[in-house]
Design a protein around this nucleic acid. Structure first.
Lengths: 106, 106
DNA sequence: TATTTGTGCAACCAATTAGTTTCATATAAT
DNA sequence: ATTATATGAAACTAATTGGTTGCACAAATA
């Protein structure tokens, strides 16, 4: 199935998984301990996160370590960039206003 | 209903609406022209986007102009920031490696 | 070899979602 | 005053989602 990063990060449990995995790679069992839901539920989240490449799998015997694929996270940042221009411009406008006020006070 | 920014941007139609509205405030009718689905479907998306404060409404007679609330967009950026540190560190590590290679070549 | 452990997958289910059609209402135009 | 337009809300529906339980299977351990 074609998975989308935005759809993946929409779920709060998945964002929590991302946060946990960001500091260190973890196995499904270890991750599941942090949640109320079953290991299988967590496993399904891991599948979704892996399918959209937000997570990478590292096999070690029968264990699978899931780690964050930071590169894919940048995709969200890339999407935000077009809007960043807008809010930075807002700041510039504000700067101008402040500068004007300042010069008038002199 | 309590609406979440991440859930709001998960839908591709809603992201398209955000993009359209980013350049200029638009009415539901004007927006609906850009999509295959009905005006009411677009209206429901607008409701979700407004509820999570990604959009603001500007009333003008019987028309309602929807405009982007850039401030709320920054919430996503704020979430990303903790991961930005990680990918910037990766870059620094890479820089070190490149620097080492460079000095060896000399 | 027999058993335990770590994992993914399938089948099922309740809740949510994104769409539809049909309305009600307020403003604008004739 | 009547009609047309812009909009939101309600009721319904099909598809998707996030959860469950039960299973299969490979790797580690006894």
């Amino acid at each position: 199935m074609r998975r989308d990063v935005f759809q993946a990060i929409a779920d709060p449990t998945r964002r929590a998984i991302i946060l946990l995995v960001a500091s260190q790679a973890m196995t499904p069992n270890a991750l599941a301990e942090h949640f109320d839901s079953s290991r299988q539920a967590v496993s399904k989240h891991l599948r979704i996160l892996t399918e959209c490449e937000l997570l990478k799998q590292e096999y070690s015997g029968r264990e699978i370590y899931y780690e964050l694929n930071v590169t894919k996270m940048q995709e969200v940042d890339k999407w935000l960039e077009q809007y960043k221009k807008i809010w930075e411009n807002r700041f510039n406008e504000l700067d101008k206003v402040l500068a004007t006020i300042k010069s008038k006070k002199k």
